[in-house]
Design a protein around this nucleic acid. Structure first.
Length: 426
RNA sequence: GGAGAGAUGGCCGAGAGGUUGAAGGCGCUCGCCUCGAAAGCGAGUGGGCGUAAAUCCGCCUCGUGAGUUCGAAUCUCACUCUCUCCGCCA
């Protein structure tokens, strides 16, 4: 959420930022309502001041035994006016809030301007995509041939866009989760969180999934207003919703494994095969809370932390800076890490690392005190996948497949696989 | 699911319609004292909004939302959460 004062004072900057994103917002109407609200508020406050003073007067007179009937009658009318004005103010506030919640974040100055993912800028590459001297297969074919992935039965159990992992496949997924968590906890200094996979509406609003993207989320219908989390970002960022953090506690680094659930509305027909786009998938998520001054540095470090997973696994990847048109709703700056996926013959997103600056913090009211006794300020929040586990499994199957149909397990995962160095058909 | 109790400032805890934004204590900050510390003494100490900012001032805020009233932390209703007992349960 943007600061309403910032919009008031810099409407052109906001308009410009939205244009770069390719988004329209009813700013003129917004400014008008804001002014009306403030005028009404001023009038209402004058009346409230009168009411407070006269109420004390009544108390004083009553105690002294003086008559108060006239005053009470007069105040009855004042109270009625206050009530009417408050109702108008409230309805204006609701409208303003509704608009405010649908205005995306302002892109950082360093974000390349562009319309779509075609305008994203490659920042760096690591590793070299392997050239195959045999007829390589897509991971869904590898998985089914090795009897470690079963999409058909998942369709029977639930429906499309679900997968069953079996045997070494299930173990590989679990190994990756543990490997990633251990790396981030032990080497990068993150604190592990195991969050609820179901959250309430306030949490979804705090991180920006709601109100605008409700159709993307799975909603629970048991007389509750609960949602399945689309990412651990939601529960973990909301850990500190409506809190004032100690300066000394910053930066805070959290890492969380969670299942993730996405309706994938609007992506019908895309990535219909394999593990790339599922309604349910596993992810290890990195979340940071930082002081404003250091959040850009923290974004660089967070991205490197995520990259290291791919480096240790030996998977080629590249990092791209998302352009203004491709930037997520709440993000001020995002790097996508894309892993080489032979079946796609291109790099495929496996992590998205973002600095939200104070946008989520303002929505979720996450503050800190810059100094003892100072006014609280909004922290900056960041997060990134470290990594999407299902896509990592897919990348391992494809990049490390052998001519005989087996798949070599990366060295670093073997201790998590009971020493297994290769998945073969059994 | 049934029965009961509760939710007040960073924490503990009073308050039961009228200078109560809130006694008292703890904690914290600053000052005095001290070579220094402790103790003691004095002062201060939630958040939001009000065109930028400090001060002043005003409005709002005692779980959340509505209501009664000239006036609500105090009364009414709904909701949320916490605790205790019973039931059920991985």
């Amino acid at each position: 959420m943007l600061d309403i004062r910032f919009i008031r004072q810099n409407p052109d900057a906001v308009r410009d930022a939205l244009k770069k994103r390719g988004v329209e917002a009813a700013l003129d109407e917004f400014m008008k309502m804001d002014e009306e609200r403030r005028n009404l508020l001023f009038e209402a406050e004058k009346l409230k001041n009168l009411r407070n003073q006269e109420s004390e007067e009544i108390a004083r007179k009553k105690k002294a035994g003086e008559p108060v009937e006239d005053l009470i009658l007069k105040m009855r009318e004042v109270s009625q006016s206050i009530k009417e004005m408050d109702e108008k103010i409230n309805s204006l506030e609701e409208s303003l809030q509704r608009i405010l919640l649908t205005i995306p974040n302002i892109p950082d100055d360093t974000v390349p301007v562009g319309k779509s993912d075609a305008d994203n800028v490659e920042v760096r590459r690591w590793g070299t995509p392997r050239t195959f001297d045999f007829d390589f297969k897509a991971h869904w074919d590898i998985g089914e041939a090795l009897d470690i992935l079963d999409f058909n039965r998942a369709g029977k159990i639930t429906g499309s866009r679900f997968a069953v992992y079996k045997g070494a496949g299930a173990r590989l997924e679990r190994a990756l989760i543990n490997f990633m968590l251990n790396l981030h906890v032990e080497k990068h200094g993150y604190t592990e969180i195991f969050p609820p996979f179901i959250v309430n509406r306030d949490s979804m609003t705090g991180t920006g999934q709601l109100p605008k993207f409700e159709e993307d989320a799975f909603k629970l219908y048991n007389n509750t207003d609960y949602f399945l989390i689309p990412t651990a970002e939601v529960p973990v960022t909301n850990l500190h919703r409506e809190e004032i953090l100690e300066k000394d506690s910053l930066p805070i680094y959290y890492v969380a494994y969670s299942g993730c659930f996405r309706a994938e509305a609007g992506s019908a027909g895309r990535d219909t095969r394999g593990l790339i786009r599922q309604h349910q998938f596993n992810k290890v998520e990195l979340v940071k809370f930082s002081e404003p001054e250091s959040s850009m540095d923290e974004l660089e470090k967070l991205t490197r932390d995520a990259e290291e997973v791919l480096q240790i696994l030996g998977l080629p990847y590249r990092v791209v800076a998302l352009c203004t048109g491709d930037l997520g709703f709440s993000s001020a700056k995002t790097y996508d890490i894309e892993v080489w996926m032979p079946s796609y013959n291109r790099y495929v997103e496996i992590s998205s690392c973002s600095n939200f600056k104070d946008y989520q913090a303002r929505r979720a009211k996450i503050q800190y005190r810059p100094e003892k006794g100072a006014k609280p300020q909004f922290v900056h929040t960041l997060n990134g996948s470290g990594l999407a586990v299902g896509r990592t499994t897919a990348a391992i199957l494809e990049n490390f497949q052998q001519p005989d149909g087996s798949v070599v397990i990366p060295e670093a995962l073997r201790e998590y696989m009971g020493g297994m160095d290769k998945i073969t058909k059994r």
